[in-house]
């Protein structure tokens, strides 16, 4: 059973490495935040796996709980920060930003927009 847990841990570690690609190569900063968030959730699971292998789950689980809390707080904080500075970053595109605001994006009365043909695309 221990060997199985170790194999699972190595698989999760490999998947985290694959996620790291999105963090390094993400086109926008939001993509990177997304990758870090997913890696953090996998880390929570990995810590508990480590505790089971180490036979001291009751200690590791507190660390996992703290890690889950911190991961969530980090994601929220960084996402909110970039959401707040987004208008200044995109200030040169102010006109297109206004024309693409949600109320202009969708025809009044129609429930659906952004359909495949794309008369109402975001960009």
């Amino acid at each position: 059973m221990e060997h199985f847990f170790i194999g699972m841990g190595v698989s999760i570690l490999f998947l985290m490495l694959c996620n790291l690609y999105r963090v390094v190569a993400g086109p926008t900063v939001i993509d990177r935040i997304l990758g870090v968030n997913v890696i953090g959730i996998k880390t929570t699971v990995l810590i508990i796996l480590l505790g089971t292998i180490d036979r001291r789950v009751e200690m590791y689980i507190d660390i996992a709980l703290g890690y889950a809390l911190l991961n969530f707080i980090t994601t929220i904080a960084v996402a909110r920060f970039y959401q707040r500075i987004a208008p200044t970053v995109n200030s040169d595109k102010k006109e297109s930003l206004h024309s693409a605001s949600p109320s202009a994006l969708i025809d009044e009365g129609a429930a659906v927009a952004g359909s495949a043909g794309g008369k109402g695309e975001i960009k």
Binding site: I106, A111, A113, G114, S115, I122
Partner: peptide, 8 residues
């Protein structure tokens, strides 16, 4: 995939 934005 056929992503779209909807409003309700």
């Amino acid at each position: 995939l056929d992503p779209r934005l909807i409003r309700f």
